[in-house]
């Protein structure tokens, strides 16, 4: 059905998307928590910055990444000198681009969930002897779980679909950064690439649909199960 090359593209997309989302998860959760729970000067600015990748043209985001993380950029040079690592033309760079683009969606989903936590339950936990840390892990986080799961799946779907920032930042390198959308784009550039485009596009649709359905099911399962627990 799919050639080995095409399977390779799918595998790369899954790897890039998976790593992007897992790495972003704690960052997004932290930001969501801060934005949901605290009032501080500059909060509006932080909120705007978090949402920036959502509203900026992806190419601009990719260009900004290039400026900062490229071989001549401040962070890129630091990475090179301290770790000998470069993100240029590498799947790690593609994962970074995907992570940045997925961040706002993940923060939004988790923030909604965090805001929905009944603070009084946290108060009850504290009176029962829980430190704030223990209360977080045993009460707050489990209650925020539906949002965290939804964020994971949403972020993953966004990551595997990321194009503009990826191609601008780390180019279109087969085996390293040629994820599904970039592969489709390349195939479109050449006459005769129709069959490959169709296969990859169908696969894209299937992955995205699958992610959405999974997200819905997860949210329903965690919420609905609690509703139905009248056994």
């Amino acid at each position: 059905m799919l050639s080995p090359e095409e399977w390779g593209i799918v595998a790369l997309s899954l790897k890039v998307g998976g790593v992007a989302v897992l790495a972003t998860l704690p960052v997004a959760f932290g930001l969501a928590w801060i934005l949901a729970r605290y009032r501080f000067p500059g909060r509006v600015v932080l909120d705007a910055l978090v949402h920036l990748p959502l509203v900026l043209p992806p190419v601009v985001t990719g260009w900004l990444l290039l400026i900062a993380f490229g071989p001549l950029g401040p962070v890129g040079r630091w990475l090179e000198s301290w770790f000998g690592a470069t993100l240029m033309f590498r799947w790690t760079g593609a994962a970074l681009a995907a992570a940045i683009m997925a961040l706002p969606l993940m923060v939004r989903a988790m923030r909604l969930s965090i805001e929905g936590i009944d603070r009084r339950l946290e108060g009850a936990a504290r009176t029962l002897g829980a430190t704030p840390w223990h209360c977080f892990w045993s009460v707050s986080l489990p209650l925020a779980l539906p949002g965290v799961l939804a964020a994971l799946v949403l972020g993953f779907a966004r990551s595997i679909g990321e194009f503009g920032a990826t191609i601008t930042f780390v180019s279109n390198i087969p085996g390293e950064t040629r994820t599904l959308p970039l592969a489709i784009y390349s195939a479109l550039q050449v006459p005769g690439g129709e069959a490959m485009v169709t296969r990859l596009a169908l696969l894209s649709v299937a992955l995205s649909l699958g992610a959405l359905i999974l997200s819905e099911w997860l949210v329903r399962r965690t919420h609905g199960e609690r509703q139905r627990r009248g056994d």
Partner: peptide, 12 residues
């Protein structure tokens, strides 16, 4: 020890 008006049992 605190017994709340609405119980506040942990739903999870």
């Amino acid at each position: 020890g605190y017994v709340f008006q609405d119980g506040r049992l942990f739903p999870h």
